[in-house]
Design a protein around this nucleic acid. Structure first.
Lengths: 72, 72
DNA sequence: ACATAATGTAAAGTATAAATAACATTGTGC
DNA sequence: GCACAATGTTATTTATACTTTACATTATGT
């Protein structure tokens, strides 16, 4: 099913960061693990706040993690 | 009253772009004028999709428009 | 003064992100 | 094999972004 229109490479970033688990990431940015799962699997897009927080954790610019892909 | 934690300089960008009106901007990105008002006045943050679309219209990187300011 | 364009404000409804909880799957090590 | 950690799935609920409508304010021009 066509999830959301925002791509991301959080999985790669987690593993590049000492194989950080979803649980750890969730705790770092103050959300639940389900939210991480949903974003990684593109069930839905994160809010802008969350996107910034995630970029903060990985110390990369937001656009290096999230890319907008218009549906068509 | 500090509503949302995301700052932006959309007003400046609109006027820098030939005084683009809220109505025009709204139409360009496919939302209503109320949404533009709410975001500009920081009643709430845009979704990540919307933030990307706005950056697209003004042809600047997302982070040049929106800055995250953690509440403290 | 009047008309109109641009911006602002507020209420009620819809859509979606995030929380919470319970259970299922996959993988790794012992 | 079993135990446990990490990830995935589903469902229900809460919070919030966005829409729609209607009306108010401010500015500009004739």
């Amino acid at each position: 099913m066509p999830p959301c229109s925002i791509q991301n490479n959080m999985r790669k970033l987690r593993f590049d960061h000492d194989e950080m688990t979803q649980q750890e990431l969730a705790k770092n940015i103050g959300v639940t693990r389900q939210t991480i799962i949903a974003i990684e699997s593109r069930k839905y897009s994160p809010t802008l706040e969350l996107a910034f927080k995630i970029a903060d954790v990985f110390q990369v610019p937001l656009e290096k993690i999230f890319q907008y892909k218009p549906e068509k």
